[in-house]
Design a binder for these strands. Structure first.
Lengths: 336, 336
DNA sequence: CTCCCAAGTAGAAACGTTTAGAAACGTGGG
DNA sequence: CCCACGTTTCTAAACGTTTCTACTTGGGAG
């Protein structure tokens, strides 16, 4: 129809001033008589008035909006993380702007700047690489921020307990009696993948198995499944004595399954596989993956809560890594 | 450190008025002398000034931002679609707000309203259900909008040619000599799934195969893999003569693979499977899926371009459905 | 030498809110 | 009957931009 009605229109229709309308809208700093409140509410209703967030944000410097920057939406892990964070944000009446970097450090900075330009109240960042530059940007801008999915000491960080996840995954394989266990890992220091790999080492040490470095296979960063496939193929040829693999992400797991298939090894029978992440799809692979599952929902609420606390002016607090949980399916040879 | 610098600060430092600063910023409606331009640019540089999008949007009623509403980020198809749209938007210097509905019609309306409140220039909507209420909301608000992922005649719509996709998928199976072919379909009318199913029927008819209704298996909407699994399990027991399955989405395919596995049928050998979508992960299943792939990138650019055209004031135009492409891998028994 | 016009600049209004300061209005106590 | 005071209301300023209108230049044409 015409333009959106403004607070002025509402005031006119209700026969009051804009101030009163605003007071009604926000349970404002001043009381409003019942009669006036009623008239205003009616006017709002009949006009279908909704406050303009831009104007409100401009005036109050609060937008009730938080920004999220992740590496890639097309990667199921991050998509699921984003979904969880959005759910948590919405529950808390915050809106979420999601931006992806597609693994470009430049684009990461650009997206962060864009969020700041949009005057978000705070930012949740899952760093694309380990760089500190993006964090510095946020700190300089004095915008509340929470880092997730990356382990680091100097900033508020909400992460899963990836070390423990790697430990438990590996333990599970050890308990199955496996002696030669390989691990697929990756390059980014501070990444969950590396923490999980550390857990892998720990588990072997605790079981008094020697850690053989040539069973720890570095994979690429961007094409997880692909590089895991290549690494596993080479591994299976080189070390036929390996009977179990710990894949530090679900996507690595996909590569392992393919390589095993091609090598004539049967996952869950011939070759045990456990993966870490537990994206919803992992349950529907063949065979269904035994996974150590990251608590997406908890991660979502924790990051958002932590951020809101900072936005509310409280000092950043340390939050303990969130526990992952082992979910037994059939890829590790557990009896079904 | 302190507050963000404003256009006033820049003007003060450059020794000009705010108007001139704005002219420089936007190659304003008025010319600016080279000297002044230089001083302003220096001031911007030294202050690290960036315009406030809220204020700018408030004044110009343009935010260079478009909104996207999809059913669910955790569903790889939509995540990939969102990623493609974001890429396209960024290329065109637009920002994208992504919102998910988690399959709730109420939340869909709420998210749309939120986008309107944030004064986005336009909205891309992948409807959660077939309802027209959300579209009406957008029309009433006179906000440019494009519908995607849903077939409908009365609004500007950018979709893949799902009918043709279903047709080609099925043709591929027919050409392999299959006689009894089943199809997994779903409930939402106007959905890609139904269009693909229509293509399935067409292909059979063209090949003079009778369409047996009990080979067209309805699945649920929310848990695609799960309900496809159940449906396929039942099917394989009931009709051992079925040798090929056309899954109208990748996720359906996951369920088929599991059911086949449990029934002792080998995908690609014993039982041909073709799926439609072609999310990146489908290539890394075992065996790699033969798929009819939705052109995500093209869909992204087309929706964004179409929307920008509308935002620019041009009349909405019809855009032809985008062609999908057959990608042969190993699930349909093609020789490798 | 004027006059006019283009180029450049400055000032101020406007976008739609919130909120501080000031004013109006009852009400109860003196 | 008046005053003080608490409650409710209004007016207007402010947030950070863009852009309209008006004003100053200087230079070229007459």
């Amino acid at each position: 129809m015409t333009n959106r009605p403004s607070v002025r229109d509402v005031a006119a229709l209700a026969g009051t001033s804009t101030a009163v309308v605003s007071y009604v809208l926000n349970n404002g700093p001043r009381p409003v008589s019942a009669a006036a409140r009623l008239r205003v509410e009616e006017a709002i209703e009949t006009l279908g008035y909704r406050p303009n967030r831009l104007a409100r944000g401009l005036r109050t410097k609060r937008t009730a909006t938080i920004g999220l920057v992740i590496p890639d939406l097309a990667r199921p892990f991050f998509a699921q993380l984003a979904a969880a964070i959005e759910d948590a944000a919405l529950q808390r009446h915050q809106h979420l702007f999601i931006s992806a970097t597609r693994f470009s450090a430049d684009r990461e900075l650009a997206q962060l700047q864009a969020l700041l330009d949009a005057a978000v109240d705070g930012v949740i960042l899952a760093p694309t690489e380990g760089h500190l530059q993006p964090v510095k940007l946020l700190a300089d801008a004095q915008v509340p921020h929470v880092i997730t999915h990356h382990h680091s000491d100097d900033v508020t960080t909400v992460v899963a307990d990836d070390r423990l996840a790697g430990l438990e995954a590996t333990n599970h394989l050890v308990e199955h009696g496996h002696r030669y266990i390989a691990c697929l890992t990756g390059p980014i220091s501070g990444s969950p993948i590396q923490a999980r790999t550390a857990g892998f080492r720990e588990a072997l040490a605790a079981a008094s198995h020697p850690v053989e470095e040539d069973l720890i296979l570095p994979c690429g960063y961007e094409h997880l499944a692909d590089s895991a496939y290549l690494a596993t193929r080479e591994l299976l040829a080189r070390r036929p004595d390996v009977t179990a693999i710990c894949a530090t992400t679900d996507e690595h797991g996909l590569g392992v399954v393919r390589a095993a298939h091609e090598a004539g090894r049967k996952i869950g029978v011939d070759l045990a596989l456990i993966t870490i992440d537990g994206t919803v799809q992992s349950e529907y692979l063949t065979p269904p993956m035994t996974v150590v599952r990251v608590p997406f929902a908890a991660l979502g609420t924790a990051t958002v809560d932590q951020l809101l606390r900072q936005i509310g002016g409280e000092a950043p607090t340390k939050v303990a890594p969130l526990r992952c949980s082992l979910i037994r399916h059939q890829s590790c040879g557990c009896p079904t």
